[in-house]
Nucleic acid binder design. Structure first.
Lengths: 110, 110
DNA sequence: TTCTTTCATCGCAAATCTACGATGATACTT
DNA sequence: AAGTATCATCGTAGATTTGCGATGAAAGAA
């Protein structure tokens, strides 16, 4: 199983962007909106359970068509919660730990 | 300024509900959806800056009509992020720290 | 009572979201 | 080249969301 698509997890990496102000509020709203659907939470949870990237088995986990799951993955990729990289005929997906840390920081500041 | 609408903040209060499983995923999706709009994030931020409850000055903070702000407040109240209580002709709003802690727990588990 | 203030709700139009099947794109296999 | 597998995109129908003005409900003031 390839893992090249998974970014390094660097716990000490700090995000210097502010957690308050108009930009931060807009960013939090966009991230929350992307997570605001049960199917997308399930996708994130599924990727979270696997520590590595997941290639081509997400559709099997959801009671939705392939095109619908692809749409949900697109939403998660647009806000960089999920990253995808091509692996031959497949696509490997993984969470972006940097974005998740950012989300936690924004939520914590509320 | 009355504060009777504000629940006690008990930092040591623990929430025993699981942060994983279908129910938790549904709950997180509902909370994230409620936060998934810039105006609603701004409302929460505004209530967060004030440590007490806020009576009748939220509309002034947003470039939206009174009815629209009321709708957004309704969304936040439906998921119990915001609480409102009547104070004469006004309504006092405040955050529910219990729900916010729950949200942080759910996000942290991703 | 009548007026005013404050907030909720109604009704509607426009925009966005959701889900699906069909189709397209890409890469591997034979 | 032809076929297969995997995922993205297109087109579309139905549902939901968003925003607003108009109206309703409740409480205090005159």
């Amino acid at each position: 199983m390839k893992e090249f698509c998974c970014p390094e997890n660097e716990p000490n990496e700090s995000d210097l962007r502010p957690v308050e102000g108009p930009d931060a509020e807009q960013e939090l709203a966009a991230l929350a909106k992307a997570l605001g659907h049960p199917a997308r939470v399930q996708i994130v949870r599924f990727l979270s359970r696997r520590s590595t990237c997941v290639c081509g088995e997400i559709v099997d986990q959801l009671p939705l068509s392939q095109s619908t799951v692809s749409q949900h993955l697109k939403v998660l990729k647009e806000v960089d919660i999920v990253q995808g990289s091509i692996d031959g005929p497949r696509v490997c997906y993984c969470l972006n730990p940097r974005t998740l840390r950012r989300l936690r920081a924004l939520i914590s500041s509320l």
